[in-house]
């Protein structure tokens, strides 16, 4: 009986020997891999270790390892921080508008583009609707401020309808959620159609021909052929949308926020930025960031479980 584990040990050590021999013989490959491994350790894993700051009290003179542990104290402070909760409220409000529209609109737009048979028109629509995706938030922010200004595009347009005013909408805190959400929709909706269009291109055209023969209307064809064909992408996007509820756009907020709209514009990311880098409270800001990421992961897993149930136990992730 004793001989079996001994034999296994021998084979393990000899297997390790061949492993190392292989490793050495691949030294060229391994040396190409090395920079990547070093990069990941330095730029990804060390910051992940830095998350321990959330459970410490850190001052600028400390090192991350040397700072004193303070348990859950930072998280207790979060509970009573009304500015944090305001930022959470704004984040969820803006995300809810944004994610709902950005979930439904690309599906509709993709179906409409797919149904166009006039090829040059199709290409023009695609080229133009993808374009805003490539503009940075700084550029779009600058444009928005111009459009929203007292004599900007929006007021000119409303003037044509006879309801123009001389309000500068960027200074109106009550309009901020919609401005932030709809400007994101404007930027991303076209780009959001790409995956759908690619999937639709894979649907067997004979389905449509057969449906047409049987006298199915266009809408009926969309409902019974196109939508089922893209259902896996729809559920994938649904999961990503739900888990993005606490996600906020720092670039957008930094460029659009001003002293007038700040109470409605401050989101979680910009709060972390302000508390951490402007006020220097590194541990507290790390705790806020960590807490929100954990909630996002929980949402992602929960959404995946729900769609899995709806999708005959097939995970789309």
């Amino acid at each position: 009986m004793n001989s079996i584990p001994a034999g296994r040990k021998r084979s393990v050590s000899s297997r390790m020997k061949t492993w190392f021999a292989d490793f050495r013989s691949q030294w060229q490959m391994q040396s190409m891999m090395l920079p990547g491994v070093i990069f990941m350790i330095v730029f990804n894993f060390i910051p992940i270790y830095g998350l321990t700051l959330a459970f410490k009290s850190y001052s600028v003179t400390d090192t991350i390892a040397g700072a004193k542990w303070n348990g859950w104290q930072n998280f207790q402070t979060i509970m009573n921080d009304k500015y944090f909760w305001q930022a959470v409220w704004n984040t969820v409000g803006i995300s809810a508008i944004k994610l709902t529209i950005e979930f439904f609109l690309p599906i509709a737009l993709a179906i409409m583009i797919y149904e166009v048979n006039w090829l040059p028109f199709k290409k023009i629509v695609q080229t133009i609707t993808y374009l805003p995706h490539f503009l940075s938030w700084i550029i779009l922010g600058g444009m928005l401020i111009n459009w929203m200004s007292s004599n900007g595009l929006i007021n000119q347009f409303l003037g044509l309808l006879g309801i123009g005013s001389h309000a500068n909408y960027m200074l109106d805190a009550n309009k901020y959620w919609n401005i932030a959400a709809w400007s994101d929709v404007w930027k991303e909706v076209g780009w959001g159609t790409i995956l759908y269009l690619a999937t639709m291109a894979g649907i067997d055209p004979t389905y449509y021909e057969a449906a047409e023969m049987d006298g199915a209307s266009k809408l009926r064809q969309i409902w019974s052929i196109t939508l089922p064909g893209i259902s896996s992408i729809i559920s994938l996007n649904l999961i990503l949308s739900v888990s993005g509820l606490f996600g906020s756009n720092l670039d957008q907020t930094l460029v659009l926020m001003n002293s007038q709209n700040q109470p409605r514009a401050e989101v979680i990311n910009s709060y972390v930025y302000r508390v951490g880098l402007t006020q220097g409270d590194f541990s507290y800001a790390t705790a806020v960031g960590l807490g929100v990421s954990v909630i996002s992961v929980i949402l992602l897993v929960a959404a995946n479980m729900v769609t899995k149930k709806l999708n005959d136990n097939q995970s789309v992730l």
Binding site: I46, L277, F282
Partner: peptide
């Protein structure tokens, strides 16, 4: 990822 603050400190 470590997020904004740990990356900044790195």
């Amino acid at each position: 990822s470590g997020g904004m603050i740990p990356t900044y400190l790195l």
